[in-house]
Design a protein around this nucleic acid. Sequence first.
DNA 1: GGTATATTCAACCAGATGGTTGACGATCCT
DNA 2: AGGATCGTCAACCATCTGGTTGAATATACC
Lengths: 110, 110
Amino acid sequence: MTSDLDTVFSALADPTRRRILTMLLEDDMAVTDVAEPFEMSLAAISKHLTILAGAGLISQEKRGRVKWCKLEPDALKSASVWMQGFGQFEPVNLDAFEAFLEQELGDRPD
Amino acid sequence: MTSDLDTVFSALADPTRRRILTMLLEDDMAVTDVAEPFEMSLAAISKHLTILAGAGLISQEKRGRVKWCKLEPDALKSASVWMQGFGQFEPVNLDAFEAFLEQELGDRPD
DNA sequence: GGTATATTCAACCAGATGGTTGACGATCCT
DNA sequence: AGGATCGTCAACCATCTGGTTGAATATACC
């Protein structure tokens, strides 16, 4: 009876997986390319991607020998609705997110 | 270096903890009262509450021998901002959340 | 003071989680 | 065919997680 929200929130609970999602926000990527910036084995990243796919947060399509990963932001919808019910936060502050993104993607020494 | 988002999302990943939060949405509650509808020991609920407090999602204030738990929805803000960056979901569908709430709180056979 | 109530603490346990390595099956390239 | 690349699988390991129980600590009540 593990809910949709269970898998989504626990997928989001890991910083590696969140970073993968922000990477995929820029473009679809192959598994190897996703793994490249991380200091961890390819197998580990492969597992993370499986978890993200299990939560519906990404889809994976195999073309040839490379498997492409695509962000599926709609999977965040139920979680977002759930959270918004508590907050009544001011109308979605996208500026804050953009600031986060710049720091996350630009500030990295690769 | 566990981020704010780590603790918030992993706190939300557990169905018991999410249910506690929705209970607190109605009113502040004592630990014992929080535990009552669950089929699990008081100690277990106490641990869950500690985790929720650690994530900032609730605050706990001891008055006399009873410890009151209060929802702190602002702790959801950073997580909400993070998620909204992906979705651009249509302007916060509160109806869906209310429907969820009714089912969650009303439909329970206790 | 003695007893009941509220909550946490400590030790323990089974199972999940996040990582590793090495072998493996596909696919592409010459 | 043979070799390199892409990705997963399987076994293993340490640590975290979510639960239990029984004892301990406060506070309230009579």
